[in-house]
Amino acid sequence: MTEAKPLQAAFTSGAAFTVGAALPLTVILLAPIERMEYFLYSFSIVFLMVLGMVSAKIGGSKVSVAILRITIWGTLAMGASVAIGYLLGVSIR
């Protein structure tokens, strides 16, 4: 049985979210506004790959598996939100 630590989990995930969200925020501050969507999606995939690599290194598991998994599922999630936006008529210019 693993010991559940609510405060540790809350702090860790909140801090990790802030670090993760700071990455697309940096893209928004720096990338040209006309092609922002493309910059956001391509950089997000790079960020996810880095996250996969770092998490596998920390956990001592296989790096390639973690990168592949996080990239595929992350791309699917972002692709699905683009598709929903398209269906609702907010297509990317």
Binding site: Q8, A9, T12, S13, G14, A15, A16, F17, T18, V19, G20, A21, A22, L23, P24, L25, V27, I28, M36, E37, L40, Y41, F43, S44, F47, L48, L51, S55, I70, G74, A77, M78, S81, V82, I92
Partner: peptide, 18 residues
């Protein structure tokens, strides 16, 4: 917890910004 948070931060904030 850290992977969940960072993954969510990247994907949800990127998608919302887009």
């Amino acid at each position: 917890a850290a992977v969940l948070g960072a993954n969510d931060g990247i994907i949800s904030v990127s998608s919302l910004a887009a």
